[in-house]
């Protein structure tokens, strides 16, 4: 089955990004496809390569990047939401790309299921 995921909150502040990541990982491990993860609202902050958590904490941003690399998950950051919050190509972490809201609608159309994580 083809899943689309929406992440509406930033890393560390809210559990949404952790939940979305663990869901995505479990979906892939169980033979499903996660076609796209769309980051919206403060969720765009998950894409900042300037993120530096303490060493004994999980690295939420790198975790997404690794997932994208290993499983070809398309990580899309909403351009309007990103620019509002200072996320641009120059500070975008590996595996993410910035694009329009149409990518979210497209995920809704193309995926069998769309699962949203937020506040």
């Amino acid at each position: 089955m083809k899943f689309g995921i929406v992440v509406n909150e930033g890393p560390y502040q809210h559990q949404a990004s952790d939940s979305a990541y663990l869901f995505t990982k479990a979906a892939i491990e169980n033979g499903h496809e996660v076609w796209r993860v769309f980051f919206y609202h403060d969720g765009v902050n998950n894409a900042s390569k300037l993120t530096e958590p303490p060493q004994d904490d999980r690295h939420i941003v790198n975790r997404w990047s690794k997932l994208a690399e290993e499983h070809k998950v398309d990580l899309v950051v909403c351009v309007a939401a990103a620019l509002r919050r200072g996320i641009k190509d120059e500070n975008l972490a590996q595996g993410f790309r910035i694009s329009g809201l149409g990518q979210l609608v497209e995920a809704g159309i193309k995926c069998d299921r769309l699962v949203t994580f937020g506040d």
């Binding site: 309007a80 809201l101 149409g102």
Partner: peptide, 19 residues
Amino acid sequence: TIYALESLEVVLITAAFDQ
């Protein structure tokens, strides 16, 4: 919070996709 505004932006785009 900004949710209402950003939600409305998605609504307009979705309509533009003829959904």
